[in-house]
Amino acid sequence: MRIVIAEDDSLLREGLAALLRAESLDVVATAQDVPSLLEAVAAHHPDVALVDVRMPPTHTDEGIVAAVEARRRQPGLGVLVLSAYVEQALATDLMIAGAAGLGYLLKERVGRVESFLDALHRVADGGTAIDPEVVAQLLTTTRPDAGLDRLTPRETEVLALMAEGLGNSAIADRLVVTEGAVHKHIRSIFAKLDLAPTEQTDRRVAAVLRHLDHARRSGGWGERDTAR
């Protein structure tokens, strides 16, 4: 797997590169800002770009802009965005045109190397990796009539893992159940939330995220109160 790293902090950049090289992954280039990232992507045609959200000059959402631009120039490029803090709105911005081949993780997840590599591979293969924190934010800020209260606790768990971008077998592993049981839960969730059933993971994630985000946006607190 060919990887490009964009991170303005040199220590973290080198640390990431060393970690990935030790896993015998091919880090073809490192960049410290948006222009050098775009140059590196154009020069090396990597499979995945690891991008920090806050980069010079303004240290706000350069990483998101760069990710969108890099994917415009090289469709199919996997982008895993790393962020020091969770901002669900940034994740929504990133996945506005679909969730395939995109990831958004907290920086500290890198320390758990196995699951980080798992997420990296998932993104490289056209899947999705959403940080559990983002999913938690989405789940807690939805209004009551989003249908989430109709889900059983187990189904909510499955929904959260699904929103993170895990496939059926990974969810089954995580919850220590059979894949058949996961299948059943997912069908039930899609029925309860009125979502079109699909087996493709990235479409599924996109649908779930869109549903959660829509429920969050349309349901202000005022509306929530009058709805009761």
Binding site: D9, L19, K107, V113
Partner: peptide, 28 residues
């Protein structure tokens, strides 16, 4: 906020990444 985020927090994240690397290295 900027000083804490871009300085201290980044250093700690780097430590975390390096420790992850150490773990992998110890295994191999």
């Amino acid at each position: 906020e900027r000083a804490l985020h871009d300085g201290t927090q980044n250093r700690l994240v780097a430590v975390n990444v390096l420790l992850g690397g150490v773990r992998q290295a110890v295994l191999r």
